[in-house]
Design a protein around this nucleic acid. Structure first.
Length: 285
DNA sequence: CACCATGTTCCTTG
DNA sequence: CCAAGGAACATGGT
């Protein structure tokens, strides 16, 4: 369930549940998700550690812990990949089929499951340090955004997915932001004008913030058997039916554009689907 | 069987 | 060295 807004909502959900809890036992079912940390070091470090806090950075979760018998702090880095989920469940519950790591916190287990195992839970925090700015970072001005776009001839949609350029934008919200900004996903990044850069950055922030606000108001079911935790897919999760209407272009190929009624088009860019309105979103200014 | 999927990383090519 | 394109990772849904 992975773009910035979903990770943000998850962080706020987990933070109060984890704070102060001590890890009694560690079970690793898929060593791959720890990479590059070894299972031995992972277990040794986490056993007896206490959760102090939880932050989000881009699509990453940063769990702040205190080492057992020490005042030394350290971080655990989490990423949900495409299909990862993290939640607390009673220790008596059977582990889910694709459980990757289970941390016993006493009466509850912290479960990290991931069907495709693309995600990570690791002591190596370096990935978070390579990220570009958060979209609404005050120091990340439209001018700086444009300066970064200037260095590439790739389509602007592809650059929005570059986590070192701007952190947290994924395939869904990239299409949504471009639609809101009236910019074609095919426009070359180095042809984005100052005006367009400002509009696009604003659109990214707005789309992200609205998704966070929306996700925060939906009764989330991170551990339910039926729900896969994808609260932004209304069709899959009943309670969020109205949310899917927030997505104006994503997965709407052939459907009428909300602004002009002409059909939404699907194209492939960098091996990913992009959805846009060829009439409302201009290739050039 | 075919194709699709919210992400990142590695390898190759130019 | 760099930018860009594509495959790989692994599983499940339609």
């Amino acid at each position: 369930m992975p773009e910035l807004p979903e990770v943000d909502v998850l962080a706020r959900h987990l933070r109060p549940l984890l704070k102060g809890k001590v890890i009694c036992a560690v079970e690793v079912r898929r060593e791959k998700v720890l990479r590059p940390t070894s299972p031995a070091l992972f277990k040794k470090t986490l056993r007896g550690a206490k959760f102090l806090g939880l932050q989000r950075r881009g699509k990453y979760l940063l769990f702040e812990l205190r080492l057992a018998d020490s005042r030394e702090k350290f971080f655990l880095l989490g990423h949900l990949g495409m299909t990862g989920r993290m939640y607390l469940a009673p220790k008596t519950d059977p582990f889910p089929k694709h459980a990757a790591v289970i941390l016993n916190l006493g009466a509850k287990n912290f479960i990290y499951e991931d069907t495709r195992y693309f995600g990570r839970l690791t002591l190596d925090v370096s990935a978070a340090e390579k990220l570009g700015p958060e979209p609404w970072d005050k120091k990340f001005t439209p001018e700086r955004f444009r300066k970064k776009l200037k260095t590439s001839r790739q389509p602007v949609k592809v650059k929005l997915l570059d986590q070192s350029l701007i952190a947290g934008v994924g395939n869904i919200y990239a299409s949504e932001a471009l639609f809101r900004a009236g910019i074609s996903p095919r426009r070359a990044a180095n042809k984005i004008s100052p005006r367009a850069a400002k509009k696009l950055l604003s659109a990214v922030c707005a789309v992200m913030q609205e998704a966070i606000d929306c996700g925060s108001t939906i009764p989330l079911n991170f551990s339910g058997r039926k729900s896969d935790g994808l609260f932004y897919f209304g069709r899959a999760v009943d309670a969020s039916e109205y949310y899917v209407e927030r997505l104006l272009v994503y997965d709407r190929a052939g459907q009428p554009c909300a602004k002009c009624q002409l059909p939404i088009k699907r194209i492939i860019q960098a091996a990913r689907s992009t959805f846009y309105c060829p009439h409302c979103q201009k290739d050039e200014e």
